[in-house]
Design a protein around this nucleic acid. Structure first.
Lengths: 339, 339
DNA sequence: GGGCGGCGGGCATACGTATTCACGTGACAT
DNA sequence: ATGTCACGTGAATACGTATGCCCGCCGCCC
């Protein structure tokens, strides 16, 4: 049997097709009695509005697109866990607001910037993924030019294109290092690439440096080692630091994965955590509380992040003005930094 | 400026609208020269096919829907990590096959079974989430009745409705326990709820029992403790077992999260892993290799799982017959079970 | 040289919904 | 009694694409 259309409902309810449309969409100009008959008929035939037809007619898809960008790592199973936990929240918020969510993993090189809103698959897009702002910039320009609605998760800085939502990375770095200083640590290393290529890391580094400055110290290049956000990179960076012979009694890692890798390296080198070296990470991944010792870290709130991203985007879609948002972070003290 | 339609392209290329459609869709009955002109015109105007119109006309959405079902846990940030890693693979496979992916988190109670294909938002759906087959059954019946195309991730058993893809859980249990036996362990506990409510766990339990039987032993109820797949549940279950005073020198946990929780409980009780108690988990979460000692576990292959799910569903959508699939698993021996 | 076949492309239309416009009916006031 | 108005509903149409059908033209063969 063919799937029912609004005409079938109309016939069954003894009204016309437009009335069915109006009744189902809650239009006020249809009487309560009629509305009831229509609902019953729709129920009987198990009728559902055809999204495609509806979208075509209304010129809107009631769908958002979520574009993930790959970390540079070629291993495609290792999605940044923090993003994954944000995903749940984004999905849920979309559902609450009556929107569907389309997901896509993208290579940085793809021509994603035209594919979604242009083909009317989505009313707006959410961009997720660490990345160099300058690399994105031309794409963002094109998006703006096209009038595409989008929000970006990342590090919001003045003068940047589009609307950006992100955690307060600098504050997180500040809190983490203040915490280590309060524990009496004085030689605090920073593990993570502090360059514009990884804007979040750079901000965390700035917080680190600011905390040191508060204590009358300066960030020493010898106490910093590059690492992208993987366990292996963290392991390697810590090894480098150990090999260089620079003394240190604490590590602030730019992400939990780095911190976990660093703890492994410290363990292998016989440096006890936290006694010999205190460690603080960033993100509060599920794995952070499972490590041994449990990892002290700066918690980002993925649930709130998702909500803010979606709601900001919906505001943009409604054509209202909205600014960047910086979300608070919170230090979670655990065993890896106990005195 | 209004976004261009195929008529605009037609005008620019000096052909008719249908020709534009044919040229862009690779229809053979359009000459190479014309096709080229059309492509150029489309490029110039930055034209993209309107998905909604196209879908409406073709009565297909070129989209799949992924439905996640919540674990019973109310905490909505804790999505089963194994599913999350499958997500990447599903998305990628969809993209490769030219399909979009719609994602939705569902309450088990919702009436999801009519919402997706019925409203033509998707050509088929993928059902993901641990769960009791009997609980699903009525919904699956309705899906079949409606002619909805769907595949389920779970434990494939004879006589079940629909098409199911799943790991070889029984084999995994067998391998895990054989491994422990080979290490000389004799008192092997099973941590996880072995009931029809968690079919995967039940199969893993069966593998556990079969391995014991091979060695001339029987599964003892005293060596089993219920746990759902969370770290807390694993911790609690191990505590129970310890409190009961039943001696054991190994644990086979039905999931890595349970295993990690159990290791924490064992540590708190002063039972050294692996010396006093060897531990094997299931899933091979990223966290498994990060625990200390690193967790021996049964690896499920999320990448392959996603591919098989998508390809099976696409086969169904094409109207071809396809059966259930059971994917191989692989034991990964790490420190937690060294002799 | 005329008929025929095939290829390339245009015409018309359908997909199912949402919206604009117009219309009929009853109530109420003049 | 007639005009006005509001309210509820139906008729017509547009959204942008894909496709069945038909037609014209060109080349080829007898």
């Amino acid at each position: 049997m063919r799937r029912p259309t609004s005409f079938d409902i109309a016939a069954l309810a003894g009204v016309s097709q437009p009335t069915v449309s109006r009744a189902l969409s809650g239009n006020a100009s249809v009487s309560e009695a009629t509305r009831l008959r229509v609902f019953e008929a729709a129920e009987t035939l198990n009728y559902k509005v055809d999204k495609n037809a509806s979208n075509l007619r209304r010129q809107a898809s009631k769908t958002l697109a979520l574009l993930f960008f790959e970390d540079p790592t070629p291993d495609d199973s290792s999605i940044n866990p923090f993003y994954l936990s944000m995903l749940g929240s984004i999905t849920r918020t979309c559902a609450l607001r009556g929107y569907d969510l389309l997901i896509s993993f993208q290579q940085l090189s793809g021509n994603w910037h035209v594919d979604y809103e242009d083909s009317r698959k989505a009313d707006g897009i959410i961009l997720l993924g660490y990345g160099d702002y300058l690399l994105y910039r031309p794409r963002l320009e094109q998006l703006l030019e096209q009038g595409t609605h989008f929000v970006r998760w990342g590090s919001a800085q003045a003068g940047q294109l589009g609307t950006t939502i992100g955690s307060d990375n600098a504050q997180g770095g500040l809190d983490a290092v203040r915490h280590l200083l309060a524990q009496g640590r004085r030689r605090i290393a920073f593990l993570g690439t502090a360059s514009a290529q990884y804007p979040e890391f750079l901000e965390r580094y700035r917080g680190y440096a600011a905390a040191l400055a508060e204590a009358g110290m300066a960030a020493e290049p010898a106490l910093q080692a590059d690492a992208i956000s993987t366990e292996e990179a963290g392991h390697h960076a810590a090894e480098q630091l150990l090999a260089a012979g620079t003394g240190f009694d604490a590590v602030f890692a730019a992400s939990d994965l780095i911190a976990i890798g660093a703890m492994r390296a410290l363990g292998e080198a016989g440096r006890l955590v936290p006694r010999a070296v205190a460690v603080v990470g960033f993100d509060d991944l599920p794995a952070a509380s499972l490590s041994s010792p449990p990892l002290t870290t700066v918690m980002q709130d993925p649930r709130r992040a998702g909500e803010v991203l979606v709601d900001t985007l919906l505001t943009l879609i409604r054509g209202e003005a909205v600014g960047n948002a910086i979300l608070p972070v919170r230090l979670v003290a655990r065993g890896s930094s106990a005195s």
